[in-house]
Amino acid sequence: MPLNPEYVGRVYGPGEPYEVSRVKIADFADAIGEASELCRNREAALKAGYPDVIAPPTFAVIIDQRSTAAVVTDPGLGLDYSMVVHGEQGFSYVRPLHAGDVVVATTTVESIKSVGALSMMVTSTSIDTVDGEHVCTARSNLVERGPES
């Protein structure tokens, strides 16, 4: 089923604040094999000029996917999530996320395209602290495979 093109330009959020924690950063670093002390040791992070331990660059996908969940589960969009594959992902950081950051995410549907049995949706998620400081923009391209492809 083609995605509803009227959803282009829709904005979701900001949702509930997400608190970036030291434990979550360390767990994520362990899971991806990131060995840096800057993700685990506060003293090392301070010495490197950061306010606390920092998150690896793909950590923001946790916050991005929580926010885009509001879009992909919106019944009016017509997305069959069981047929979705991740097409592209990008992050633009003003600075790294660090433990103690409390951020909110706002997701905008940038484009919707249907080519044959494939549908593509690009979303852009702005991640900002609750004090209004912009930290990161995450861009995601989800591809829905058609039933015959």
């Binding site: 840096s36 800057l38 920092i54 690896p56 660059p57 793909t58 592209e88 992050f91 790294p96």
Partner: peptide, 8 residues
């Protein structure tokens, strides 16, 4: 890991 600004 904080040295990355843009990544896609």
């Amino acid at each position: 890991p904080g040295a990355v600004a843009d990544f896609g």
